[in-house]
Amino acid sequence: MKRNPFKAKKYAVSKIYHAKPMDLERSEERPNVPEGIMTKCPSCGRIIYTKLLLKNFKRCDECGYNFKVSAHERIAMIIDEGEFIEFDAQMTTRDPLQFPGYADKLVKTQAQTGLADSIVTGMGKIEGYPVMIGVMDPAFFMGSMGTTVGEKLTRLFERATKEGMPVIVFTASGGARMQEGIFSLMQMAKVSAAVAKHSQAGLLYITVLTDPTTGGVTASFAMLGDILLAEPGALIGFAGPRVIQQTIGQKLPEGFQRAEFLLEHGFLDRIVPRDQMKYVLATLLKMHSQNRTGKATKEV
């Protein structure tokens, strides 16, 4: 008789659930959590039932740690159900430098992640308010920006400008993608130009900085929002902490380059916990959905 895989998994759940805390402490390798059912918080070590974690916006209910979320998970958290239309889903890079080994690594990463590159862009609604949205995925080449991210974002902003719509971008990126060299660097100028045009048209752009946002992404569209939000604890900076530590040869202060540090230094408008993000974004969209005469600028 075929074993019921569902039942087997259920057994594993209860086994882990009853594991004594002492057992967990004994070895670094334990607990041997079955894929996907239980998840260990990398910050406080708490073992969380995955279904509960998903319900809780992938946030540890013990310490508040924000688990990494994929672009599509993020869209599900923010955009009204069934309202997302993706743009340029199949766009990939043409490997402009013909960089050794890059094409193979791309194919492998695409298979692993199911993404064509490190950003998903599209259009949707948040509590009924229409918006163009771009979400970076940290699992794809560390969310780095090459020509595909640059082109997709530029198209998103150009389209939003043409249609008179607000844009929200969730950043999560190690910076410019090394394998595309100078072309990646130039995407910073290209996207910033499209953001500037969108801004000139009097349209709203909100950036939400998530962990981590560094390098060429910080030094371009991430910092150009009318309103800059961040998730608690997100690492945000131009140079990465390791590079700075190597450069200056001294230990970095506690909390350096975290969202709270940026807020204190005046580089963020607000830190928003994940469970409040949709509400805050919807409210901001609502506040910008009318022109000076109080008339709705866009059919809701």
Binding site: S192, A193, V195, T218, A219, M223, F238, A239, T247, I248
Partner: peptide, 26 residues
């Protein structure tokens, strides 16, 4: 390259560069 250091980060190296890109374009 732009300087990598504590002060540079505290005073917003990323924001300074980003602003130049957007402003120079216009």
């Amino acid at each position: 390259g732009a300087y990598c250091g504590i002060g540079a980060e505290e005073r917003g190296q990323g924001e300074a560069i980003a602003s130049n890109l957007a402003e120079m374009m216009q």
